[in-house]
Structure formats: C-alpha cells, structure tokens
Design a protein around this nucleic acid. Structure first.
Lengths: 237, 237
DNA sequence: CGAGAACTTGATAGTGCTCAAACGAGGTGG
DNA sequence: CCACCTCGTTTGAGCACTATCAAGTTCTCG
C-alpha cells in the first residue's frame, strides 16, 4: 500500500457509504503529510498528534490503558484504513496509543477536518459511521471478556482480525500477518502472557490454527468459528 | 422529570456543547411522542423501534448480548438523557435493549433525525460527540473486565453510575437509586450472581457502601474511589 | 557472537464458578 | 387475611480456570 492510496484505503474502510468526489477532495485537503513510526513508539499523544489525526496506511497500532500497578489493557487495535484519534475531535482526553509494528500513517489536520465535517454533511455521517463501527467492536470485546473463556476469546479475536484484515485486502482466505506479541494478545483478552501462550498451544494442538513467526494460518476455519461462536455481523457497519 | 423537559435533559446530557435555538427546534421537530415501557420489556427491537430512536426521560435501560449457552452480558446502561439507538441511524444491526425499570422515553423519528443532522452541522457534531462519549465508557468497561478483580470492578461501576446520575440531577452527593438486580450487576461486570453478591457484601462489611431496597449509599466516597482506582475524566466528554 | 526480547514449560496458589438449598419480600387468588 | 408462588438475595462446599512465580529455551538483531 503506497502513500498515495491512503484515500482509497479510507474509502474502502468506509464500505458502502461511498464518498462522493466533493467529499474526497475535502478530506484530501486535510492531509498535512505522512509519517512513519517505529515499533513501540507512542503515537497520537506526541507533538504530531496535537494537531493531526492518524490514518493508518500500513502497520498496526493499539490503544493501551494502564493501571497504577502497571497492568495494561489494550482497548482498540487499529489496522490499515482505520482512523485513529477521532475522539480528540471533541477535545476529549485520549489514551495512549502505540505502534505495534512499523507504522505508516497519513496525518490529517484536526482543524481542517472539523471544518470539513461542518461543511459537508456526508463527511460528518462518515465519521459517525466510523465511531459506531468502533463501538460495535468494543461491545464485542466486552462480551468476549465477560462471557467467553480465554481460549474462546482468543479464537474470537483471531476471527475478528481476519475479517477486518480481509476487508482491506491484507488477509488471504485463511491466513494473515499478526504482529502482536503474545504479551500484547494477552493484554487484549485480559489474560496473563503465560496463559495466552497455553491457549494458543491448545488451538494449535487441536489443529485449528498455525501461528509462527508472526503469521496466523487458519487450518480449520469452520472449527475456529465454532469455538469462538463468531458472527461477523457486527463488523458490517 | 416531566415529559416536556426531555429536550432540556438532552441538552444537559450534551454538556458544554450547547445547542443553539435552531438546533433545539430541529430536534424537537423529530419528536413523534413519548412512551412508557414496563420493567423487563424489550425496547428498540420492536414495532416502535423500527422508526424511532429512544431518548430516555426516566428509568434505566440496558443493552444485552446473549450467547448460545444463554449467558448474557450487559454492554451499555442507558440513563436519563441518554439516546438509545444511535447505531441504527447507519442501518447497523442493533442488539437487544431491555427496560431495567419502568421506563419513560421520548421517541425521535429516525428519518427526521437523519435529515436534521444532514442539514445542521452542529447537530451532527452533537451525535458524534455522544457516540464518542459512549466509546469512552465502553473502553473503561473493557479495562474493568480485563484488569480489575470483581470487587474493584464493582466499585468502579458504582462510581461511574454515581457520576453519570449526578450529572443529570439524579444522585445526591452520596446516594442514588440503582434499579439493577444483582443478577444484572453481575452481567455488567462479567461475574456470577453469587460472586457479585459476595463482593457487594464485602464492600458493605468494609463500611464503604450501603445497598438496600434499590438504593446505594456511599458511606466512604474516598475509599470507594480508591478501591476502584476511579478517575472520572473519561466521563467528561 | 552476545544480549535482550519473546516464547515455553512446570509447579503452586487463588479468584471466581458451579451446584444446591434456604430465606425473604412482594403479589395474587381463594 | 392467609396460603402460595415467584423473584431476588443469601449461604455453603467443592471444583476449575487462570494467576503467580521461577526457570529454561528460542529467536532476533546489532
């Protein structure tokens, strides 16, 4: 995915709600540049983030909430096409967001974007749409944390990530890159790294997945879906 | 709270982003009536919900996600002033929402509201604002489920509810009505009803709260906040 | 090749679950 | 007015899932 395609990527992410040429132009005028972060760097809560939202072009990012005892929870994962920092539009305090892998982003000027959505109703709808899509994912994560055991939750997460990546052309029918470490996976599903490791091994022993050198291969898709009780409808926003 | 005040209530809920007379008029023209549900009734996914969003005037509602085995998770709690069904604006599939107590709602016509936000940029911003505020709460719930033990999570939930109710004038400095059953509380924090009961008793034994006949009294506010590691900043959207 | 990060494995402890039953309050019908 | 039924709360005992602690192994990269 080259830098110039960021707008197409964003449009693909928005799905059926196609942007018209006018909206495309309005957004592309918000672009102030692109930037590359290294794995582990803080994004959004930095000099750049003060003025600009980050549209992910390539790589992964994650929002991390940390408690006093140092324990950390990942509440969002941002993939290609995801817009990161929408909540700062309303002046809300944002959490820490870190680059999970090398990360290429398009920088969209906050003020310009606010202007754009005030001028163009469709753009505003598009952002609302994105926010609601995120909500749906957050809710599903809550269900995973509250109701599923860790093995099922892990399976569900893999299904979700596969779906989301497939939508933007970053997954084949049965495989995708997963740059999250097991530690980070455990921060998503609310487990310890040790336990996450064991649940992964269990899924491997069951022959459902393979997961080596940052690549997940889904060997038995239907069984994975069954374990996870996965229904991708919530991603159809 | 009488029916006529629903708009003021909504405005109070939006907080600093005051609506101007024009926007107020635009919203109030979306009103198609008010309605009362009984405790336990399904709202939103019914005849009325097909065409109308529900603005809570009085009472509580909760969004419930149910798994195949019958286990249920509450992912949202809607209080006075909360707008319920925003996600249906984008045609997304909604979850089940039930009335936790007797529930009075204002019904806002979906099509009219869509028109209104397409016409008035400020209204659109207001809805985006609401969606982001909900996101912040969802994230905090994720942190609670992933990182806090059930006692702390329960304490955190009580802090949050107190804050949100206080904002709309439904809590005193140290007490509020809590119509959720212990079973429903447990569906929020991802525990069994038995365990939730024990954690409540522990908080009572510690002298931190009282909770009788659907009323929570916070006896030691600072200690409750400390147990929960509660920081209300995320509610300041 | 060395050093640190990430992954793996084992043993033990504990939080929270399951099953089972009893108790209390509110509502209804006889 | 009381029996009775239901829903919600409370209590107890045993078990399971997951955490914790500790150590060893593999991988990655300068």
């Amino acid at each position: 995915m080259s830098d110039g395609d960021w707008l197409d990527l964003f449009q693909k992410r928005l799905g059926p709600n196609e942007l018209e040429p006018g909206e495309r132009a309005a957004i592309s005028q918000c672009l102030v540049g692109t930037f590359t972060y290294n794995r582990g760097e803080r994004i959004l809560l930095n000099e750049i983030g003060k003025d600009a939202l980050h549209l992910v072009i390539r790589g992964w990012a994650a929002r991390v909430c940390t408690l006093e005892n140092g324990a950390a929870q990942i509440t969002d994962v941002f993939l290609s096409g995801d817009l990161c920092g929408v909540s700062t539009l309303t002046g809300a305090p944002s959490n820490e967001v870190v680059a999970v892998s090398a990360l290429r982003v398009a920088l969209l000027d906050r003020t310009a974007l606010l202007n754009a959505i005030d001028t163009r109703a469709k753009l505003s709808r598009a952002l609302l749409h994105l926010a609601l899509a995120e909500q749906a994912i957050l809710r599903e994560w809550i269900v995973g944390l509250g109701l599923r055991d860790k093995r099922k939750h892990l399976a569900h997460l893999l299904c979700e990530l596969h779906c989301r990546l497939f939508r933007v052309g970053l997954a084949t029918a049965d495989a995708f890159d997963l740059p999250l470490t097991q530690e980070q996976l455990s921060q998503v599903i609310g487990a310890t790294a040790v336990h996450t490791n064991r649940m992964l091994q269990q899924l491997r022993k069951e022959g459902v997945i393979r997961f080596e050198s940052r690549v997940v291969q889904i060997l038995k898709p239907s069984q994975l879906v069954e374990i996870a009780e996965f229904d991708g409808a919530y991603l159809k926003h």
